[in-house]
Design a protein around this nucleic acid. Structure first.
Length: 563
RNA sequence: UGGGGUAUAGCCAAGUUGGUAAGGCAGCGGGUUUUGAUCCCGCCAUUCGUAGGUUCGAGUCCUGCUACCCCAGCCA
């Protein structure tokens, strides 16, 4: 669509431009490096778009690398869901996906090299001792008594570690850097720990696993990554990143740059909290349409291109941010406004009987699929004596601001005729059960001949032709902008984040909607005056299920609320 | 004075060598409209965390101050 869309500009691309101008690289290489210990969310999407778009725009490459150095928290289901999500977003990594565990042999060799250079040692201090000797933010640490063990002994100990001769927690391999450094991560960081854990990729081959700080930079170097992009909390770690790649024999020296994570209002984007939402059943699962996960957003009806557009709009900086939900919503509205066929659906029906129409009469009207795009064609809409309209579209009495159906007043039925409300029938409780109207047969596709102006237009469906549908309306999952800032974030969960409606959808939908569990083939519609909806995988031939992706902009709601 | 970072509108964010504050979202006003939608038009920072300084000229350079975020896992 927007062929002339300008390339985004951000500080990382500026660094790349400078590096390229300086002749530092002939090809840019990035990577997206998730740990397979959870599902991807919209915050990961920001990183995915950043890394893959840069690779694409600079004709470089982007790897998908699973940072799988902690087998106890990881599993193959997560790697599969992550691969599927990245692809759904529209990206393809270079070659086969990579794993940090692919490099365990090489990493072991680099560790040995460090020991041989006198830059690493096996420490038999307990975890508590290590913590105590590390010092604090304001007090320097103390050297471990194992710091000056000879190279030969260290080599032997490390070998034994690898061979499973030491218990978990009994010892660890540490870099020999500086226990007085102001960077806590430089106070002899642990490089390897003993873990008798089964690994989803390497099985039981290893009982020692390398730590993130040792693994990530070297994996980058091995893969020839030029620009290693990560989030702000790793800024201090960059010193260790640089120390490792400089002290080990690698061919290329990658560099790390940090950008700020995405924060989105009225939701949470931390893996721990997301897990809690699922495990405590606050949501139906990882793909609950209220979840900020890629799977949830997808099921909600967001397209991959709208998520990419969002990532483009929010930009990339080092500033702490809290993006408003309206930013995300605007992206999907912009897209669906152009692409989604219009349909009519009544969410909370009330019967309307047209008194001056014959009982069995059915008129098949043509209705455009899109008001501004005739190329999208038309569909047939049955008009008959009994129809349903929205309960909130009728009032017995109302002021001029209310542009809908009012007793003894007229309103336009969308794509059909002008009707006038004559009387209503109520049940014992006083609820309106039926509205009786007369229609003006000379108003199809034109205004009344006598010059009467009918302001309002409401949607409707033919009672006998309409199909029952469950319509799920979603609201924000939390009722505070920053739930992560609460003492207990689950306390601010919005109790009405999901509203089930038993509605009626127009006839055409019952024929065109295909029942499928294939979440990639999403069918989205605009239910006129209501919003954008997509077919949910829970749909059956007996009952269609729709998710409301997002409402239409609603200036009337504001007027009404204001009084 | 532990260290590392960040401050431009309600939110996100351009602003590259100092030359007189892009754009998007939200909001507000108006027009078109058989969706209170879309679309169109207009408005929305004399000022860039703050106090000084340099300069003909500072969001951009210098100095001081303030606020917020991150770091003391054998997690990533």
């Amino acid at each position: 669509m927007a062929e002339t869309a300008p390339r985004p500009t951000n500080f990382i691309r500026q660094i790349i431009d400078k590096d390229l101008a300086a002749g530092l690289h002939d090809k840019i290489a990035t990577r997206f490096p998730p740990e397979p210990n959870g599902y991807l969310h919209i915050g990961h999407a920001k990183s995915i778009c950043l890394n893959f778009d840069i690779a694409q725009d600079y004709q470089g490459m982007c790897n998908l690398r699973f940072d799988d150095t902690n087998p106890e928290k990881e599993n193959i289901d997560f790697v599969n869901s992550i691969k599927a999500d990245v692809q759904w977003l529209g990206y393809q990594w270079q070659g086969k996906e990579r794993y940090s565990s692919d490099y365990f042999d090489a990493l072991y060799g680099f560790a040995v090299e460090l020991i041989e250079k006198g830059l690493a040692y096996v420490d038999f201090s307990t975890q508590d001792e290590v913590r105590e000797m590390r010092g604090t933010l304001t007090a320097p640490g103390k050297n471990s008594p194992y710091r000056d063990t000879s190279i030969e002994e260290n080599l032997a100990h490390f070998e034994k570690m690898k061979n499973g001769e030491y218990k978990e927690g009994q010892c660890s391999l540490r870099a020999k850097i500086d226990m007085t450094s102001a960077f806590m991560c430089m106070r002899d960081p642990i490089l390897y720990r003993v873990k008798f854990a089964h690994h989803h990729q390497t099985g039981d081959k290893w009982c020692i696993y390398p730590m993130y700080d040792f693994t990530h930079c070297l994996s980058d170097a091995i893969e020839g990554i030029t620009h290693s992009l990560c989030s702000l909390e790793f800024q201090d770690n960059r010193r260790l990143y640089d120390w490792v790649v400089e002290n080990v024999s690698v061919d290329t020296i990658p560099h790390q740059y940090e950008f700020s994570r995405l924060n989105l209002e009225y939701t949470v984007l931390s893996k721990r909290k997301l897990i809690q939402l699922v495990e405590e059943s606050h949501v139906s699962g990882w793909d609950d349409p209220r979840m900020p996960t890629v799977a949830g957003i997808r099921r909600r009806g967001y397209t991959a291109s709208s998520v990419r557009e969002f990532c483009q709009r929010i930009g990339v900086t080092k500033m702490e941010n809290m993006v408003e939900m309206s930013m995300l919503e605007a992206c999907i509205r912009d897209e669906l406004n152009v692409s989604a066929p219009r349909r009519m659906a009544v969410l909370a029906p009330v019967k309307l009987i047209i008194e001056n129409m014959d009982d069995g009469h059915v008129e098949w009207l043509d209705a455009p699929n899109h008001p501004n795009n005739p190329d999208m064609g038309t569909r047939k809409v049955p008009f008959a004596k009994e129809i349903f309209i929205e309960q909130e579209d009728f009032r017995e009495a109302a002021n001029k601001k209310f542009k809908r159906l009012v007793l003894e007043k007229e309103v336009r039925l969308r794509n059909a005729y002008v009707v006038k409300a004559n009387r209503v029938e109520k049940d014992e409780a006083g609820n309106i059960t039926t509205i009786f109207c007369t229609y003006d047969a000379d108003t199809l596709g034109k205004d009344p001949a006598d010059g009467r102006k009918v302001k309002g237009v409401i949607h409707w469906v033919s009672a006998v032709h309409a199909k029952d549908a469950e319509i799920r309306l979603y609201d924000r999952l939390f009722n505070v902008p920053n739930p992560a800032g609460e003492e207990d974030f689950t306390g601010s969960i919005n109790p009405t984040s999901l509203t089930l409606m038993h509605g009626k959808v127009e006839h055409a939908l019952s024929e065109e909607v295909t029942i499928s569990s294939d979440t990639d083939a999403l069918q989205s519609y605009q239910f006129e005056r209501q919003g954008y909806f997509c077919v949910d995988k829970d749909s059956t031939t007996d009952k269609l299920v729709f998710n409301r992706t997002v409402e239409l902009r609603d200036t009337w709601a504001k007027v009404e609320q204001a009084g």
